[in-house]
Design a protein around this nucleic acid. Structure first.
Lengths: 335, 335
DNA sequence: CTGTTAGCGCATTCAG
DNA sequence: CTGAATGCGCTAACAG
């Protein structure tokens, strides 16, 4: 199977009758190589199909021209963001490397681990997706998207307006006549989850509707962790007439639980989500949700990062907050 | 900004009062370290927040425990696949690295370039997404998903049943009474595109409906390349009553063009796609399409790869073909 | 049990 | 203009 153990610089050098140093110069476009040698080396490179090894190169030079997107796992949120980054990176000459250590469920500190493995070697800068804790002392420029800690950190951040978005969601339910509204919250350690809960409470308070604390649960943002709380909510003696789930994945889970329980959505219970990942439109029924401009957030994060990469340490405390909007589909009905 | 230039193994060694070799042994769980030293080194590692550098490690050892997914760019097709791989990898202890060189539009040979940069150093095995040409002489195990060349290659492949899927799509249009059906094909260099065209022609022939060659265009699978041909098609003196677009992205583009032209979908023209990426449900109107089991394809590719990684060179000529199905939404109507 | 010695593939001085 | 030497951070022999 290992017919060709990979062609390395030494192979090219030998074939072209020059030294590795010369090949290196050609590859990196350094001056000090005659036209003839240049051509010849290039020809051999093409023939042998040589490519510089990312790993080896990064060990010596501090420039790899690769930007890393670090995620806990590839789920709808991070992949949507990735598309935005990918689109935006086309205008630059950076390459994209998305990495996921095996940390499903987002064990605290995964981003530090991943960053440690890649930073200082493979990537010039990193976009951290939903990091639980933002490292202050990183060696490379970092931008955080939807971070745990909110705006108080030293690194630039990009996030959606979670507070207003949650208020909008709750107001929508309220405007439909719902009063007994449940909140299936996110991970309590995430700033976004806290803001969404706060928005929920603000909207309820503004409408002078008391919050029944029994209807406030934590769904952990993931299907596995949301299923239990959703079931509890829907099987309460006096169940809610509407559920605001803090993200689409738990909203979809809630609808699945309802279906299993023989309850109709939105007949028996209305459900609204948050994020507007593509999956939400595929759900049954199509999910009404709060749109988060995921592509734009990814593109913005990339712009910020590239700016830092180019212009040294500018805008260290930039915090971009992008607006959300209501997407009405079929999972909410008037009471 | 570079407060801490990254903590390396030597730092840990110094802080723990041992040599780097010992630290390496501890990190890699090698035998030959006393319990006490082990503990102490581990403690220092935790304190300093050390992580082994992927780049440096891969240079020396041939095992990185990382699997690479190589894509031309992060668009809906590849990211859906990525989700499937990500889900399946959870059951293993591999980490996931998705890489995109900057080759939008899929310049021929991008996969060789990317493979060259990562193989032999950073990753133990690779999943190639829609490679244009499959390298025979790679140094690491490789699985191709939806390859250009079809099943004739030496590497294992995973793909959807493009032929039957295309037939299904065409038959659906036919069953709705359409006769003047256009094909907005894919990239002519891709096997999948060829099979979809073949399926289209077979279904037309089976229904004894002649194909008007003026209605067969190449849309290149991408929005930018599909827009022109789609416009031509819809502005023909005698336009088609239905369009079979070879993938969802070009189908969505077709619907956008129609909207811009003031034509209603499906009122004036029916549109059917291929892939069933999540975006297709979000389109206006929701796109009727052929579902490709993207998640499952990703998971299957990973299983194949892990199998090769474990059990040396087994199943070199495995070719998995997964079934497609029709997803009816709102972009097709009876004539 | 631990430290010392070699490189892995590449980019960079610095001589020739 | 070119090549030989050096070291990036780490692991794999071996030596103590």
């Amino acid at each position: 199977m290992q017919a060709s153990p990979r062609v390395k610089m030494a192979d090219v050098a030998k074939a072209a009758g020059v030294s590795v140093a010369t090949v290196s110069k050609v590859v990196n476009g350094r001056y000090g190589v005659s036209e003839a040698t240049h051509e010849r080396v290039l020809a051999v490179i093409g023939e042998l199909g040589y490519e510089t090894s990312l790993g080896a190169r990064s060990l010596r030079s501090l420039q790899t021209n690769v930007i890393g997107v670090l995620v806990a796992e590839f789920e709808p949120f991070s992949t949507e963001l990735l598309k935005g980054v990918s689109d935006a990176i086309a205008a630059t000459d950076y390459e994209l490397l998305a990495y996921s250590g095996g940390h499903r469920g987002g064990a605290v500190g995964w981003e530090r681990r991943s960053l440690g493995r890649l930073a200082g070697s493979l990537i010039d800068g990193a976009i951290l997706v939903t990091p639980t804790v933002v490292e202050t002392g990183t060696s490379i420029p970092v931008v955080a998207v939807d971070p745990h800690t909110g705006d108080t950190t030293a690194v630039p951040t990009v996030e959606a307006d979670n507070l207003v978005g949650a208020r909008t969601a709750t107001e929508h339910l309220l405007s439909l006549g719902h009063r007994r509204i449940a909140l299936l919250g996110g991970r309590p350690d995430l700033e976004s989850a806290r803001l969404r809960e706060q928005g929920f409470r603000e909207a309820m308070a503004a409408a002078a509707v008391p919050v029944d604390e029994e209807l406030v649960r934590s769904g952990g943002y993931r299907p596995e962790t949301a299923e239990g709380p959703a079931t509890e909510l829907l099987t309460l003696p006096e169940p809610p007439t509407a559920v605001f789930a803090a993200n689409d994945l738990s909203a979809i889970t809630t609808m699945e639980v309802a279906a299993r329980l023989g309850q109709s959505v939105p007949g028996d219970v209305s459900v609204i989500g948050f994020d507007n990942v593509p999956e939400s439109a595929l759900a049954t029924p199509p999910l009404t949700t709060i749109q988060q401009p995921l592509h734009q957030m990814g593109a913005t994060a990339l712009d910020l990062l590239v700016g830092m990469l180019r212009g040294a340490a500018e805008g260290r405390a930039t915090h971009v907050r992008l607006p959300t909007s209501l997407v009405e589909r079929a999972s909410c009905a008037p009471l």
